[in-house]
Design a protein around this nucleic acid. Structure first.
Length: 273
DNA sequence: AAACAATACAACCGCAAGGGT
DNA sequence: AACCCTTGCGGTTGTATTGTT
């Protein structure tokens, strides 16, 4: 028995959203609020599945979203939170108002990972790469030892593929991607982490001390009630109680642009409440 | 100027959690 | 308890853009 698809995919559109589709979705959400995403495409006149609509709204069209690159402060927060929470992007995103889990995940994979590696930090463990490298060199050392121990029944074959095996190990561990540590930058990192830990009473490891996270808490923009009501009164409640959250937005210029076939690219002009 | 490669990010996919019946 | 449905999450892919040769 196969899994039931989230929606009937026959005839549904995939790929990038058009301005017209965005306009339809925004108009629908503005009029009706968020409810039962499965029904949204039909009601909004979209040839998309509900899941796609939800993602488009939460990751791109929501009025409280910031656009543009993460600031240095936000980036530092992401790194600190990631060291404590790991790849729990939604949890990390909850500490960064106006940023989505998807956005943070993408930024992590494209920018922060590289930055950390350049700084000599392993993005996975948040430890200096020298420690990681020592561990990673073990398989290569073992292999070298095997070859140094003299001929065996299959040494001929092994010698033929020694380089390939080294390459395989390097590929597996990404050694070629790992730059040597610049002692200066490492020192800088360490001193920074000492400073941050002394100022926030935490270290960068996975300690349970939550004071650091408390320090990082922003005033939340509360969407929790918005659209979580799935009963029949949901829409009315949403419109009555929560749509003001949307309508309190003090500058609709971005949406005006969008509704005029111009997708907003610049940073958010929406106010958080 | 064209072709190719690298990068950034939007969008998709599958799975799991949670709530309702 | 079992099933169904919706939503949320994290990993992955696809594609547009930018950089390089």
């Amino acid at each position: 028995m196969g899994r039931q698809p989230c929606c009937d995919k026959v005839g549904l559109k995939k790929g990038p959203w058009t301005a017209e589709e965005d306009r339809k979705l925004i108009n629908f959400i503005l009029t009706n609020g968020q409810c039962c995403w499965r029904a949204v495409p039909k009601l909004a006149g979209l040839l998309r599945c509900g899941k796609s609509c939800r993602l488009r709204w939460t990751n791109y069209l929501r009025p409280d979203l910031k656009r543009g690159l993460l600031s240095d402060y936000e980036e530092k927060m992401v790194i600190d939170l990631h060291s404590q929470l790991g790849n729990r992007w939604s949890k990390i995103a909850s500490h960064l108002p106006g940023r989505t889990d998807n956005e943070i995940k993408n930024h992590w994979n494209t920018h922060i990972k590289k930055k950390l590696r350049k700084m000599g930090i392993d993005p996975l463990t948040h430890k200096p790469l020298s420690i990681v490298e020592q561990d990673e060199e073990e398989p290569i050392k073992k292999l070298q030892k095997t070859f140094e121990e003299g001929p065996t029944s299959n040494s001929k074959n092994m010698s033929l593929c020694y380089n390939e095996q080294i390459m395989a190990i390097n590929n597996e561990y990404g050694v070629e991607e790992v730059p040597l540590i610049d002692p200066e930058s490492l020192e800088l990192i360490c001193s920074n982490s000492v400073m941050s830990s002394s100022s926030t009473s935490t270290s960068s490891n996975s300690s349970n001390d939550s004071s650091f996270l408390k320090d990082l808490q922003f005033q939340d923009f509360d969407w929790s009630d918005y659209g979580n009501d799935n009963n029949n009164n949901g829409v009315d409640n949403i419109i009555e109680n929560n749509m003001m959250s949307l309508l309190d937005v003090d500058d609709f210029s971005n949406w005006d642009l969008l509704l005029n076939d111009d997708i907003p690219q610049s940073s958010s002009t929406f106010r958080l409440f």
